[in-house]
Write a protein that binds this DNA or RNA. Structure first.
Lengths: 217, 217
DNA sequence: GACGTTTTAGACAATGGTGTCTAGTTTTAC
DNA sequence: GTAAAACTAGACACCATTGTCTAAAACGTC
């Protein structure tokens, strides 16, 4: 028998290879043989660890989601409690967000697989939605609420603003992210700058009275 | 032999059914048998019209692209030459755009198939990019240039503004479009209104001096 | 070094797909 | 009405894939 949780090297290697092959070929197009040989492992070993293809696929999705979730959490909590120069802070934050959560390998995997296999596995789609976009959305909304309360922004609907912020950041990256090309640092920064500039034009507080240094909430 | 261009009913029926099945199952997951029976046609007929599966797939993509392209053109040229109330005109335009070109069946098909099979058929992806997003982008940029010239907007970078406009319109619809659910009229209108409001806040001309009725350019 | 576990390579049946072929039927055109 | 074209249903060979099984090899641990 196999210790389900003892993440021996083979198990990880299989997960990794499976993610790559599933992402490139889709569920139906990926063959266990290809995954096994990409993982430098015999086919039988794959079947030993994950009873069947469906099972392996679910394990891969779960694994990628866990990683993406941890990354998302750490990125979201990286916004400074007391922003010094709002525009720069937001731009840097946008760069980190796209780099760590959108344009990375896991982000690509989830977008692609959820979209193409979501109809076949509805609960997969639902899980992704709850853990991915939903969580980003509420966290961003909370951030903008905080900034509005401090007088640094003038946002009326926090949820709409959150979605728009994400959409703006993605605006210049969509082509790259769709094709799977990871944009360069320069592209990321330019995209973030464009996005933040428009966002602040629309939602910036009119009086640029540099916040009267409220004590951290 | 078969008249390649004589679009007999069977041919169309096959194209239609194939689009549906390819979209639902992906290329690898779709079987000719399923397509044939969905089209109420024998398998042999499919092979008579389209020599092989690859060929059929290409024909479907081409067909959908042509339709989407025509629809895009007619929608883009529907923006009034002399806008009366910019915000309302832009909102109505955004609704038409999402309704006719993004949230419809063809839009869903293209997004899904290009994303999941784009890596296998690079020229497919390239073609879609040229005919879809690229074309929308340049057309919108031209529109914003025109509006800026008339003093109705204050846009510095037309291309960036075009991408941002599209991104904002999509912001509230992404979940629906990803899942394949066609949003209701109400949702479309609310999404358009949110998008246009933010867009005009960012790019609206400061002096709301109702354009001095320049002769149509 | 011996034992149990894990891994391997390969054979294997079962399944389901593609693409071809044939023989018979329907549709279309003249 | 008749002949050609298009279509159907089914059988078919061929191949790839899934998932099982076995016997041998590698590994780790005591």
């Amino acid at each position: 028998m196999h210790s389900q949780r003892g993440q021996c090297a083979k198990r990880l290697s299989i997960l990794e290879a499976a993610a790559e092959v599933f992402c490139r070929q889709g569920f139906a197009g990926a063959s266990i043989d290809e995954i096994a040989s990409a993982a430098c492992v015999s086919r039988q070993t794959v079947y030993n660890h994950y009873r069947e293809k469906d099972n392996l696929f679910m394990a891969v999705v779960e694994d990628v989601m866990d990683r993406a979730n941890a990354m998302l959490f750490s990125t979201l909590s990286s916004f400074p409690e007391i922003p010094e120069r709002l525009e720069d802070d937001l731009a840097a934050f946008a760069v980190r967000l796209s780099q760590n959560c959108i344009c990375n390998q896991d982000g690509k995997f989830l977008r692609k697989l959820v979209l193409s296999e979501g109809e076949r596995y509805p609960h997969l789609f639902e899980g992704w939605r709850q853990h991915g976009p939903r969580k980003i959305g509420t966290a961003l909304a909370a951030l903008f609420a905080r900034l509005s309360y401090k007088g640094l922004l003038q946002v009326d609907d926090f949820d709409v603003a959150a979605r728009q912020f994400l959409a703006l950041v993605n605006a210049d990256l969509q082509m790259s992210t769709l094709f799977g090309v990871t944009p360069t640092e320069v592209e990321l920064e330019s995209a973030a700058r464009n996005a933040v500039r428009t966002f602040i034009r629309a939602y910036g507080a009119p009086a640029q009275a540099n916040a009267p240094a409220l004590p951290a909430v």
